[in-house]
Design a protein around this nucleic acid. Structure first.
Length: 873
RNA sequence: GCCGAAGUGGCGGAAUUGGUAGACGCGCUAGAUUCAGGAUCUAGUGGACAGUAUAUCCGUGGGAGUUCGAAUCUCCCCUUCGGCACCA
């Protein structure tokens, strides 16, 4: 009699048992070493999607695996609960963001519990809880006091129709997503975190993050964007003043034939004044300022052609349209065209070249960024492609100062700029110098003359955290007419986000219209004052939540130093690759700030990072608009949690994208059924097997082979999980072991009940299968484990260690190649001498066909792998 | 545009250090079982060639190169995806 694989009952029962036994609570005074595994917490959008399931399944495997290895595992879960979708829902469905958010959290928590994830739910929190954000407000004030917070103007997307700020994602083709009004740029006062104070440490820290993927570190390094160059002073011609430029190519200084300023450069208007170019400049800047900043960054024409169109037209296909082709394949429309090019205007003013004294015209160029360097560029058309195109367009002179080896560049015949290395020409005393040396020589010369100096520039900008929105952490500042801007007194925290705000499609930030909120008294002078109505970027909450998990019950302080220092840095952080730059950089920055404020000791938040790929269906990311969403609830109902987990882990390695396949899910389900039957149909024999170690050792050739496979599988699975989290290959190794066990039973028949040795070997194999698969499919393996007669949950089993003597093969297969092509193979015992293998290979009749009558040039032998006979000519 | 990835059978993927390309699974084909379907089991499954042999040739997005040997290293090109600072 065998039991049916009733996954629903099994999964519910074991989940209840685990909870009852409190297996997932991370104790504080444990003698076991700690291990902190964390998945990026979700935004409570309503329902979990497959991306969540994948993320949390991967984390759960790591958590369970580490527990089996004897670690005291901290594996928490919570909610990144502030954000725009709640406000959008409020406007659309007339439901308060708070209610909407909490309903979503309740629903999603149930979903996560149903997934059997091994969280310590005692530590759960939501960031919209005042008990969380009050500490963020404290950090803000402390950062303000430490000079890490400041206020300045910055540009935002503005919709005149809605009278509101728009996020980038609310701008569709340059228009407001709600009312279709053209989006303009507007200067707005806002709060900034001085992340640039930590630039150097953030950059250098990348070298120490050996547990992070190299590609993420590269992206972070590039984002910070360190470049060594020079700041050079160009005096104005004909009047007092100067313009400073930053360049990474001081070696090309003598090739500068004009200067380009950013349209935002503060000197622009002053320069063109009285030159007759005033009108033209104003028209240009007026035109330019209407293009939102985010579109300016993608303004290079594809084929380096200058398109002189007066209207800055941007054509963009409606966001990545998916079209269904007749054969039901989803294809992305290829026409994602942006046609626009750099443009500029002459200011009418000139600077003097610092070395030659020549007059150089000053232009305004739309590709020059105010945020980087000094907002002014010395243009060297011969050696910078953008300058080259600009010079061609406006008929400006081109002067070659770097001559590459073996070429003779001439301004008239050049088709593009030469940006590579070479020797200096036309550069006076610097001629004949290699350009790399000339960089130092020219910078040194300028420094001596007081005309410039070496400078390191970074691309990283300060972090603007002001949001003119309701559903976020209120910024704890007060505006007083007498005292200016004053922080809220720490004892008055938290500044509670009022729940009676009105949200509608029109208007300013809801808080600025809510007098009961903004009307206050100045903490300093006691006079009437106005509260800051901006809230913080939700990235702030996610920049320290991992620290709060270590002490979520702490009521007197944001963090309990002892507990934070015990757990941080997170041993293993897991989340989507889309967070490779912003979230991870902000979290690193915040950790360093909290360290310097004395709240914790860690320098970095995450010791090891695993970036998982996306879940795709029909080659595209799952989304409602594309209609290719697979609902986790339905899948779990039909197949059970273990099947879904198995499929997700098996279908691809975690760092790669995962293509959803309903048939693949069925395959995973089938595999679990196979294990179920294999064990339940042989339960009598398996449970009767002797547990005596001795009996395993004496065995027939066949049982020896199965034992060998068992121990090889233990080795392989441990390696795959430990070294690279490749659960897909770990699972396929277990599949091979199952296949071998099935083949064993087919070949020799089910052992008689008194064949103790055979049963013992089979039992060893099956128990290995269950333990190895447990972190991935915990419910079915726990059930089968107990069916095999074990009283306690498999969760408490230690991770197995392979017996290397058993795993080692007696013979090894050596490939024989002739001229690198596989021609034969020989089986030899381990450690056979090279000479013996060589003569075996040369005597092989299949090899003789190729070697007969020709001379052997040389023989290459790779021990234990192959032998390659290289023939003459 | 800039930065970062990826591209291997009909499909997902494997090949961990330059050393047997296609493990494992899906799908498909044939057979067994079954009233039938499903499920299960057995065998086969990159392509060409099916002159029969555990043959030969071709084959890891395209093109060149390094090497005894390249999916893996170098250079160029193509395609797809992620990020680009107010989505989280």
């Amino acid at each position: 009699m065998t039991a049916r694989y009733d996954f629903k009952t099994i999964e519910e029962r074991h989940q209840a048992d685990w909870t009852k036994e409190g297996l997932f609570a991370a104790g504080e005074d444990s003698s076991r070493p700690g291990y902190y595994v964390l998945e990026m917490f979700p935004y409570p959008s309503g329902r979990i999607h497959m991306g969540h399931v994948r993320n949390y399944t991967i984390g759960d495997v790591v958590a369970r695996y580490k527990r089996m290895q004897g670690y005291n595992v901290l594996h928490p879960m919570g909610w990144d609960a502030f954000g725009m979708p709640a406000e959008n829902a409020a406007i659309k469905h007339r439901i308060h963001p708070s209610i909407w958010t909490h309903e979503n959290i309740d629903y999603m928590r149930k979903q996560l519990r149903r997934l059997g994830l091994s969280y310590d739910w005692e530590r759960e929190f939501a960031t919209c809880d005042p008990e969380y954000y009050r500490w963020e407000q404290l950090f803000f004030i402390q950062m303000f006091e430490a000079g890490l917070v400041y206020r300045r103007k910055s540009k935002v997307n503005w919709c005149e129709g809605c009278q509101t700020v728009l996020a980038n994602e609310q701008v569709e083709d340059g228009r407001c997503w709600r009312c279709d009004t053209e989006v303009v740029e507007k200067e707005l006062d806002g709060w900034f975190f001085k992340i640039t104070d930590y630039t150097q440490e953030l950059l250098e820290g990348c070298d120490k993050l050996t547990g992070w993927p190299e590609k993420v570190l590269t992206m972070q390094r590039n984002w910070i964007g360190r470049s060594v160059g020079a700041e050079i002073i160009f005096p104005l011609a004909g009047k007092d003043g100067e313009i400073r430029v930053f360049t990474t190519r001081p070696d090309t200084l003598l090739g500068a034939t004009f200067m380009s300023l950013s349209p935002e450069h503060p000197m622009v208007l002053e320069l063109c004044m009285g030159t007759g170019q005033e009108e033209e400049v104003k028209t240009f800047i007026d035109h330019w300022s209407k293009i939102p900043a985010r579109e300016r960054q993608i303004t290079k024409s594809p084929n380096h052609q200058i398109i002189q169109s007066p209207n800055h037209q941007i054509t963009k296909s409606p966001n990545h349209q998916i079209t269904k082709s007749p054969n039901h394949q989803i294809t992305k429309s290829p026409n994602h065209q942006i046609t626009k090019s750099q443009k500029g205007v002459f200011t009418g003013a000139y600077v003097k070249h610092p070395l030659t004294g020549e007059s150089i015209p000053i232009y305004i160029a739309d590709f020059v960024l105010m945020e980087y360097g000094t907002g002014a560029v010395m243009a060297v058309p011969a050696h910078d492609q953008r300058d080259f195109e600009f010079a061609k367009e406006y008929k400006l002179p081109i002067k070659v100062v770097i001559q590459p080896e073996g070429k003779d560049l001439k301004p008239d015949t050049m088709k593009e700029a030469w940006e590579g290395p070479g020797t200096l020409v036309n550069s006076g005393s610097f001629d004949d110098m290699k350009n790399e040396r000339a960089k130092e020589a020219i910078t040194g010369h300028l420094e001596a003359q007081g005309l410039g100096n070496q400078k390191i520039s970074y691309r990283l900008r300060d972090w603007g955290i002001s949001r003119q929105r309701y559903w976020g952490t209120p910024i704890p500042m007060v505006h007083c007419d007498t005292c200016g801007i004053v922080p809220v007194r720490k004892q008055d925290l938290p500044v509670i986000l009022p729940l009676d705000a009105q949200l509608d499609e029109q208007g300013q930030s809801p808080l600025s219209g809510l007098e009961s909120f903004w009307s206050t008294t100045c903490p300093k002078c006691g006079g009437p004052a106005r509260r800051e109505s901006d809230t913080m970027d939700t990235f702030v909450e996610s920049s320290w939540y991992f620290a709060r998990y270590t002490c979520p019950d702490e009521t007197s302080a944001p963090l309990d130093r002892n507990r934070v220092d015990k757990w941080l840095p997170v041993n293993q952080y897991i989340g989507g690759i889309e967070h490779a730059i912003l979230h991870l950089l902000y979290a690193r920055f915040f950790t360093k700030v909290l360290r310097d404020l004395g709240w914790l000791s860690a320098d970095e938040p995450f010791a090891n990072l695993l970036t998982q790929g996306m879940v795709l269906k029909d080659g595209a990311k799952m989304s409602k608009s594309k209609g290719n969403v697979v609902d986790p609830d339905k899948m779990i109902h039909t197949f059970g949690v273990d099947t879904i987990r198995l499929f997700i882990l098996f279908a691809s390695p975690p760092e790669r994208d995962l293509e959803w396949s309903d048939q693949g899910v069925e395959g995973a389900h089938r595999f679990l059924h196979r294990i179920w039957r294999l064990i339940t149909e042989n339960l009598e024999g398996l449970t009767s097997a002797s547990t005596d170690k001795e009996i395993l050792v004496q065995g027939t050739k066949a049982t020896k082979a199965l034992r060998q496979k068992t121990h090889q599988t233990i080795l392989k699975v441990t390696e795959d999980i430990e070294q690279r989290f490749h659960f897909n290959t770990a699972i396929s190794a277990v599949m091979e072991l199952i296949n071998e066990a099935m083949a064993y039973l087919n070949r020799y028949g089910t052992p008689k009940i008194d064949q103790q040795g055979d049963w013992a070997v089979l039992r060893e194999a099956m128990e290995a299968v269950l333990i190895l698969l447990f972190p991935m499919v915990p419910h079915i393996t726990d059930e089968l484990w107990q069916l095999l007669g074990h009283q306690k949950t498999i969760s408490l089993e230690p991770w197995p260690v392979a017996d290397l003597d058993v795993a080692r093969a007696d013979t090894v297969n050596i490939v024989v190649q002739v001229n690198g092509k596989l021609r034969s193979q020989v089986d030899v015992t381990q450690n056979t001498d090279k000479e013996i293998i060589e003569s075996m290979a040369l005597d092989d009749p299949k090899i003789k066909r190729y070697t007969e009558g020709k001379g052997v040039h040389k023989i290459i032998y790779v021990p234990g792998r192959l032998i390659n006979i290289v023939m003459k000519h």
